[in-house]
């Protein structure tokens, strides 16, 4: 379908089962990570995830689907496939680099300064609209800082 660049699959396992890792990594190109079982699998806890649970995020990072897929013995249901295709088609075609407000190809403190200036001028710039809600405000500054500090 040609959607490969717009959708990303990540498998989130538990490192207590690391000896079975090859069941997931055998020749495919999906990212596979393992939660820290010795710490109580905090990522699983944070997400409220159970065994064989699938979460789908749209291009803004919002969770739009959550389901235990144990019953999907016949593969991905058609309605879920259609939902994923719809989400992909909703991705803006010329989405700017999030946070690169001054367009220099990097996201750094200069972009924070620029974003604050946009807010003070009551202006709008798509690349500063980090949460894509149609306005540039303090929430976008928070998002931008989080991108810079890597949280």
């Amino acid at each position: 379908m040609g959607y490969g660049d717009d959708v990303k699959l990540v498998g989130v396992g538990k490192d207590q089962h690391i000896n079975a890792l090859s069941n997931w990594t055998n020749g495919n190109d999906a990212s596979v990570v393992a939660d820290d079982s010795s710490s109580g699998n905090p990522i699983w806890t944070q997400w409220g995830a159970g065994q064989r649970e699938l979460f789908i995020m749209d291009h803004t990072g919002a969770i739009v689907f959550e389901e235990n897929i144990t019953s999907w013995s016949g593969g991905v249901p058609t309605d879920v496939k259609n939902q994923i295709v719809g989400l992909i088609e909703d991705i803006p075609s010329d989405e700017p680099l999030f946070g690169d407000v001054n367009g220099d190809g990097a996201v750094n403190v200069v972009d924070v300064v620029q974003t604050v200036s946009i807010i003070l001028d009551d202006d709008y710039l798509a690349s500063a609209d980090i949460n894509s809600d149609g306005v540039v405000n303090v929430v976008d500054v928070v998002g931008l800082v989080n991108i810079i500090v890597g949280t």
């Binding site: 717009d6 959708v7 990303k8 065994q51 064989r52 699938l54 979460f55 749209d58």
Partner: peptide, 8 residues
């Protein structure tokens, strides 16, 4: 991107 996160 659209991302799928599978927990297992």
């Amino acid at each position: 991107q659209v991302t799928l996160h599978y927990f297992g």
